[in-house]
C-alpha cells in the first residue's frame, strides 16, 4: 500500500486553487525523481519512493547545512573571509551560490545594503506553475519582486515561448528562485538517491565525498550511514529545500544595542521557510548595511547567508510487511 498518494508542494504552498492540475503535475514530477534504489556496497538499505513502497517509519532526521557556499570559503579563502563574502555576492548569475541557497542584495544610493532576500525555491516549482498558469507566475513576481514585472519579461521570446529562469527579475533585478546550475530539486533528489551507494566504506571516515560543499557530504554521509543500517530512506513530505533557521545573536544597531527582529518569512513557515527577507523597518534611522555582526559591519549579503541554516527532511524505517 502506498503511503503517499500525492506528494505535497514545498511548505504546502497553495499558489493555485486546490484542485488545479498543477498539484497532480507536481506529484508526478516528484514521484518520477524518487526512484526506488537499492543500496550497494556496505549499504544494505535502500532509497525508496514513498508513493510506491510502504515503510514503517522509525526515525526522522533533519539534514542541516550552512547557506553560505563552503567551497568559496574553503579551502582557498580560509584566511580571507571578506574576500569570500565578496566573491559569493558578485559572481555573475549567483554561479557560486551552490548550497541550495541563493540570495539577492539591494543597496541604496550610498551603496549600503538595504535588504537581503534569501530563497530556497527551486526552478522546477516555478516551471510547473508557468506550465499551468502564467498569469499567476506574473502576479507572484509582481508581489515578490516588483510591480513593474510583465509576462514578456519572463519569457524566452514571443507570446507562448518558454519560461526564462534567467529573466532580469530573477537575476540582475531580483530573486524568486534558484538559477545556479546544480541548485535544482532534481539534483537534490538525485543526491539523496545516489547516497545509498556507499562502496566499501564501513564508516564515515572511510567515505570520500568528493564535493567541497557543505550539503553534498551532509547528505551523502547521513543517508549512507542510515543505509548501512539496512534502513529504507526517503525524503519527508512535503519535500522541499528549506531554511530551517537564522541566527542574529550578536548583531547590533549602530548604537551598539541588539538588533530587533528584522526577519520576514515571505513564503513558507517557521522551520520550512522558502523566502526570507532581512530588512530594517522604515523610520529606524539606519539600514542593514549599518548593522554590525560581532562588531563587523555588513558589507555583503554573504555575511547574512553565513548565519542561515538550510535543511532537507529525511525519514527512515523498515518496509512494512
Amino acid at each position: 500500500m502506498a503511503l503517499v498518494t500525492r506528494f505535497d508542494t514545498p511548505a504546502s504552498l497553495r499558489d493555485l486553487p486546490v484542485g488545479s492540475v498543477f498539484y497532480d503535475n507536481w506529484h508526478a514530477f516528484l514521484a518520477g525523481g524518487l526512484v526506488t534504489t537499492p543500496g550497494s556496497g556496505t549499504a544494505t538499505g535502500e532509497f525508496y519512493d514513498a508513493s510506491e513502497i510502504n515503510v514503517d517509519i522509525l526515525a526522522e532526521r533533519a539534514l542541516v547545512w550552512m547557506g553560505f557556499p563552503r567551497r568559496v570559503l574553503l579551502p582557498s579563502r580560509r584566511d580571507d573571509h571578506l574576500d569570500a563574502y565578496m566573491t559569493a555576492d558578485t559572481t555573475a548569475n549567483r554561479a557560486v551560490q551552490d548550497e541550495y541557497c541563493e540570495w539577492f542584495v539591494k543597496r541604496n544610493a550610498a551603496g549600503k545594503i538595504t535588504k537581503v532576500t534569501i530563497v530556497t525555491e527551486t526552478p522546477e516549482y516555478w516551471q510547473h506553475l508557468w506550465d499551468v498558469d502564467r498569469a499567476t507566475v506574473v502576479n507572484l513576481y509582481k508581489t515578490l519582486v516588483s510591480p513593474a514585472v510583465v509576462e514578456a519579461d519572463l519569457r524566452t521570446g514571443g507570446p507562448g515561448s518558454a519560461y526564462n529562469k534567467f529573466n532580469r527579475w530573477n537575476t540582475t533585478d531580483g530573486i524568486v528562485h534558484f538559477i545556479q546550475s546544480i541548485n535544482t530539486l532534481g539534483a537534490a533528489l538525485g543526491l539523496a538517491r545516489g547516497s545509498v551507494a556507499t562502496g566499501a566504506a564501513r564508516d564515515n571516515y572511510e567515505m570520500t565525498p568528493g564535493a567541497n560543499t557543505s550539503v553534498d557530504p551532509r547528505v551523502i554521509l547521513d543517508v549512507g550511514a542510515l543505509a548501512r543500517k539496512g534502513l529504507s530512506i526517503t525524503l519527508r513530505d512535503p519535500i522541499g529545500i528549506y531554511i530551517a533557521g537564522y541566527d542574529d545573536t550578536g548583531w547590533t544597531k549602530p548604537d551598539g544595542s541588539p538588533v530587533g527582529n528584522y526577519w520576514t518569512i515571505v513564503r513558507g513557515s517557521p522551520g520550512r521557510i522558502l523566502r526570507l527577507e532581512y530588512k530594517v523597518p522604515a523610520g529606524a534611522g539606519f539600514v542593514v548595511g549599518d548593522i554590525r555582526i560581532g562588531g563587523r559591519r555588513i558589507e555583503w549579503g554573504g555575511q547574512v547567508a553565513e548565519h542561515i541554516t538550510c535543511t532537507l527532511g529525511g525519514v527512515a524505517g523498515r518496509r512494512a510487511r
Binding site: 547545512w65 563552503r70 571516515y205 557530504p217 550511514a225
Partner: peptide, 11 residues
C-alpha cells in the same frame, strides 16, 4: 565521524 552543517569529518 558524524557529518555536520559544514560537511565532512575533515572539516
Amino acid at each position: 565521524d558524524g557529518a555536520t552543517d559544514l560537511g565532512k569529518p575533515s572539516d
